[in-house]
Write a protein that binds this DNA or RNA. Structure first.
Length: 227
DNA sequence: CACCAGGCAAGTA
DNA sequence: TACTTGCATGGT
């Protein structure tokens, strides 16, 4: 059995790490041509769920013309659950989506444009107050739907930092986030692309079971270290 | 067959 | 506070 992709730690930066991933995978162009609402819905549906399953659920919503704030707000939770069934946890996620849509109506008159005018910190607090929206979902919405420079942390992020000696097992979400925020320029496109590259690398190489034969980070002599 | 996937909230001690 | 469990489909 192969060792986990832990490498030595000599003098590389997060920016170099991102460049390496970019050279290897190319631009990821995550969530490019979709509407903000579609991104928000996707952010909830993808909680602990493979993206291909999420796409099926979103296609169902589109096919029935249900992918609008108005339609989502009007329909029953049960009907919504049925439509998003392929995404898994459909009863829970139907409630979460209804909570999120209700939040947009109650605070912003059902207008994402109005919501977009909100300052980033109060917006994040508001999103987190919605039952079913945790830190990753909130930050995914801020970054990918609302184009705010917020770094998104997920299980892959934690795992990759762990394997490269840049984090420990019990670090909380905001601590992992600080690792990036404290060592990178605050840049929307950088945060967008870097997170997408981390997920790509995680999916292909940095799984729960060690499997690192071709991992670009693990072939990276020295491994990353914060500077 | 087992295991995993771009989390989160609620329950338990 | 610090674990544990439920939620569920679909792909490998």
């Amino acid at each position: 059995m192969q060792e986990p992709c832990v490498q030595s730690q000599t003098g590389r930066s997060l920016l170099e790490m991102r460049q390496l991933l970019l050279d290897h995978f190319g631009p990821q162009e995550w969530w490019p041509g979709e509407t903000p609402l579609e991104v928000m819905v996707g952010a909830v549906l993808t909680q602990n769920t493979n993206w291909t399953n999420v796409e099926k659920a979103i296609q169902n919503l589109k096919a029935e013309d249900l992918l609008s704030l108005k339609a989502l707000n009007a329909m029953s939770t049960q009907a919504l659950a049925e439509a998003i069934r392929p995404a898994g946890y459909f009863n829970v996620k139907a409630k979460r989506l209804k909570n999120l849509v209700r939040f947009v109506f109650e605070r912003y008159s059902g207008s994402l444009d109005e919501l977009s005018n909100e300052a980033i910190e109060s917006l994040r607090q508001g999103l987190l107050s919605v039952n079913g929206v945790g830190p990753e979902t909130a930050d995914s919405i801020l970054l990918y739907a609302l184009e705010r420079p917020v770094f998104v942390v997920d299980t892959y992020t934690h795992r990759i930092l762990l394997r490269h000696g840049m984090a420990d097992e019990q670090m909380a979400y905001h601590e992992l986030q600080e690792v990036f925020v404290d060592h990178l320029p605050e840049d929307l496109d950088l945060f967008n692309e870097f997170h997408a590259l981390i997920v790509r690398a995680g999916k292909e190489y940095c799984k729960k079971r060690p499997l690192c034969s071709d991992c670009p980070l693990c072939k990276w002599e020295g491994g990353p270290v914060l500077q």
